[in-house]
């Protein structure tokens, strides 16, 4: 491996560590693929927070861990939403998809914020109830993903 190649690899690796990669979507298929990744990432955050909430409500996790973990997922979801928002939908078909997923994402974002707020207030015992609406978000995201195939 030449020196130059090594530097290119190193630079790529470093820049990949710092940036989320979002490219433009040239075709509808491309847009569908990106929507899928977005929905999968969102689903992961939603499910993580649901599990965190039940774990905390059962008395199985302490405050700092719960708070920090929920905030992390909130940040992750915000990144995912931001990235998806910046993708240009190529046609009207894609506009529809975008509207559909946008709705799911914003609902998840709201519910996640509610869980974070409750956790910060220290009401861990009832956290599973605060997180209950996330179940619907999870179902909706799952249905959305199934609809894509």
């Amino acid at each position: 491996m030449g020196n130059r190649v090594r530097w290119v690899v190193a630079t790529l690796a470093l820049s990949a560590c710092t940036h989320h990669q979002v490219g433009p979507a040239r075709t509808f298929d491309d847009y569908v693929r990106k929507s899928r990744t977005t929905a999968e990432d969102a689903l992961s955050s939603v499910e993580t927070v649901r599990l965190l909430a039940t774990t905390a409500a059962d008395g199985n996790a302490f405050g700092p861990y719960t708070n920090v973990s929920i905030s992390e997922q909130e940040d992750t979801l915000a990144d995912v939403v931001g990235d998806f928002g910046s993708i240009q939908p190529p046609d009207q078909h894609a506009d529809q998809l975008r509207a559909q997923l946008d709705a799911l994402l914003s609902s998840a974002t709201d519910h996640l914020a509610a869980v974070r707020i409750a956790a910060r207030r220290g009401t861990l015992a009832g956290l599973d109830e605060v997180a209950a609406p996330l179940a619907a978000d999870s179902d909706a995201l799952n249905a959305f993903l199934e609809g894509l195939t």
Binding site: D41, L43, D58, A61
Partner: peptide, 23 residues
Amino acid sequence: RHIVVEQLSQVALPVASAVGRLG
């Protein structure tokens, strides 16, 4: 649960949920 591990906190999550606070 279709959780993708992107944070270190998620690595510890199964232990919390199965073993509890002490775990």
